[in-house]
């Protein structure tokens, strides 16, 4: 069983090599940014001729950069909270509820993943313009909530499928009403999934560029918009420093989310009789 014919083994090695090559090819631009952000020159260059953190300092010292970052963070937090709340309720309705037109709801939730962001951005711009929501924090947070919703719903759905629904019955039989049951039993047990979903939603909002471009304006711009504009005016390595930090933040959020989900799976396995 363990011995494979030689040609097969060679084929497998070639496949592995190809897979790694593609991964490296995809990752390379992202990785190259990191050394570029630590170079001392005024212009972006590779390889860097020395090591300096001055561009990181430049970022933290620049009021414009900080204002854009805080604006994005604000929108991200609001979007994360809204998307997690709405997404959790949606996931619960899809799993537990006897919802008429379940398929249609599912389709609508997946919508933002399928529709090209640029099309979504134009549509949102046209609607938000009428409602005077363009250029506002509220408008941006709403748009990002919609974009993050599918990811939240999928993450919470996965948590609910792992959750033993019989525990809810046990709780009801203990005299807890449906509300208390959700609060004391369901919520604590799917909480890691919710936190992971919220982190994901925050990241989606925080580095979203296309929709932001259409519905934010020059006074209140998001971090990705500020980055894009910077490329046009001055290609300073500050941009690379910001990109590096953004990448690190995203990776950290994904790792935390992954660790939370792993912990939840382990617990679900342990309590199965």
């Amino acid at each position: 069983m363990s011995r494979q014919p030689a040609p097969n083994r060679a084929g497998r090695a070639a496949l592995n090599a190809a897979a790694y090559a593609v991964t490296v090819f995809l990752l390379l631009p992202t990785l190259i940014i990191i050394p570029m952000s630590a170079g001392p020159e005024r212009l972006l260059s590779f390889p860097p001729k020395g090591f300096s953190l001055r561009w990181y300092g430049e970022y933290f010292g620049d009021e414009d950069w900080i204002r854009a970052t805080l604006f994005s963070a604000e929108a991200g937090v609001i979007a994360a909270v809204c998307a997690t709340t709405v997404g959790t309720m949606l996931a619960l309705a899809l799993v537990r509820g006897r919802l008429p037109g379940k398929g249609l709801v599912e389709l609508l939730v997946i919508g933002p993943v399928i529709v090209p962001h640029i099309a979504l951005a134009v549509a949102m711009f046209l609607v938000f313009e009428q409602l005077r929501l363009t250029g506002s924090l509220l408008g941006l947070a709403m748009a990002h909530t919609v974009l993050a919703l599918p990811f939240v719903v999928f993450t919470v759905l996965a948590a609910l499928y792992r959750f033993d629904a019989e525990l809810e019955r046990a709780s009801l039989s203990c005299g807890a009403g449906p509300g208390s049951t959700f609060l004391h039993v369901t919520l604590p047990l799917i909480a890691p999934g919710l936190i992971s979903a919220a982190l994901f939603a925050f990241i989606i909002s925080f580095d979203e560029a296309v929709v932001s471009f259409f519905i934010s304006d020059l006074d209140r711009k998001t971090l990705p918009r500020k980055m894009f504009e910077d490329i046009d005016f001055n290609i300073s390595p500050t941009l690379a420093a910001v990109a590096t930090m953004l990448t690190a933040l995203t990776i950290a959020a994904l790792l935390i989310g992954y660790a939370l989900r792993r912990g939840m799976e382990r617990r679900a396995r342990r309590t199965k009789p």
Partner: peptide, 11 residues
């Protein structure tokens, strides 16, 4: 009510 599986709250 006592269920077939123990259904204790794991948390």
């Amino acid at each position: 009510m006592v269920f077939q599986r123990y259904t204790l709250f794991p948390h």
